[in-house]
């Protein structure tokens, strides 16, 4: 039971990070029907910008807690802003000129953009892993029990609390933005019928740009979390996390916002539970197998919308 609880905490943390990235995949797919393969690399860029910002600000674990929170918020804003610019630029340069051409074209440039971003960071920041001294330390021991192998303590670290709480807040705000504001309505209108949205005076190109900007900003949040949680990053983290988050988006139902959040959580949980109870080696296989099984029975994902609609 204690072991289960610990895996649950770890899984939720990882799932939060995947969920934040998955939103970007699902929103872009929803509005222009393409898989933005460069999105995982935007997450990676976000993590690097966060690292650069933390280094520049020069705060460490011994800095007072109030200052750390303030500084981290500043870092968060900086990496969201920069990642947003990257996301906007990628769409502007690589995807918009190809809008209306054959379906595979933007997919190919997306892969190209992904490689370009990786190489760019590799050259600018070096190929070796970059460490970060732990900034947020400590945590709580929830329960302690004696087992045959000694004392087992269920730990909830401060960084895990930070990640889960931030993700919940952001996802709530973001869902409200999409559901309740006129901006969110325009976004959904473009998703359902771009031609009609334009006929109602919506600037479709701008709405698409905004989707990329928002998706990139959320990926940057995930990037900062990843950096704080694992303490090491390299130019390749975007690939692995990107594939996972993409899997999450498909599992939840690509195009569906709650689906992306749910899918992210599930992939995070599947991975940690599999590693916790079976073997670390096949955790990716486990995640993909479950995806395959779900897609057999629910082709549009857990919360995806069916393709057919009444006319």
């Amino acid at each position: 039971m204690e072991y289960f609880l610990q895996q649950l905490i770890n899984g939720l943390t990882l799932g939060s990070i995947y969920g934040l990235i998955a939103i970007g995949y699902t929103m872009v797919y929803g509005i222009i029907g393409m898989i933005n393969f460069a999105h995982g690399d935007i997450f990676m860029v976000g993590a690097f910008i966060a690292l650069i910002a933390i280094t520049a600000l020069g705060f460490v674990a011994s800095t007072g807690i109030g200052l750390i929170i303030l500084a981290l918020m500043l870092v968060l804003v900086i990496s969201m802003l920069f990642a947003a610019v990257y996301g906007w630029t990628v769409e502007r340069l690589a995807y918009r000129p190809l809008r209306g051409s054959f379906r595979l074209a933007p997919l190919i440039t997306a892969i190209g953009m992904s490689i370009a971003l990786q190489n760019y960071v590799q050259i600018a920041q070096g190929a070796r892993v970059k460490p970060l001294q732990p900034i947020i330390t400590g945590g709580y021991t929830i329960t302690e029990t004696m087992t045959e192998n000694g004392l087992f303590a269920v730990q909830l670290s401060n960084i895990q609390i930070l990640i889960i709480v931030t993700t919940v807040i952001l996802m709530t705000l973001f869902s409200l933005l999409i559901a309740k504001t006129s901006l969110g309505r325009s976004q959904r209108a473009c998703e359902q019928d771009r031609k009609m949205a334009a006929l109602l005076g919506v600037n479709v190109d701008r709405t698409i740009s905004l989707t990329f900007v928002v998706g990139a900003a959320l990926a940057a949040v995930a990037g900062l979390m990843f950096l704080l949680y694992y303490g090491v990053i390299d130019f390749y983290i975007g690939f692995v996390a990107g594939v996972k988050a993409f899997t999450a988006a498909v599992l939840g139902g690509i195009g569906s916002l709650p689906g992306a959040m749910l899918g992210g959580l599930l992939i995070g949980l599947i991975e940690t539970f599999w590693s916790g109870y079976f073997t670390v080696e096949y955790k990716d296989v486990a995640a993909f197998s479950i995806l395959a099984i779900v897609l057999i029975f629910m082709p549009s994902g857990l919360l995806g919308k069916p393709e057919v609609e009444k006319v």
Binding site: S182, R185, S186, R188, A189, Q192, D193, K195, M196, A197, L199, L200, G201, V202, K305, E309, K310, V311
Partner: peptide, 23 residues
Amino acid sequence: SPEGRRIFPRMTVLENLQMGAAV
């Protein structure tokens, strides 16, 4: 009001009308 009506299928009637007032 275009050919085929083009109602946003996954928006409520009210939201469709709000979209009409978007300008």
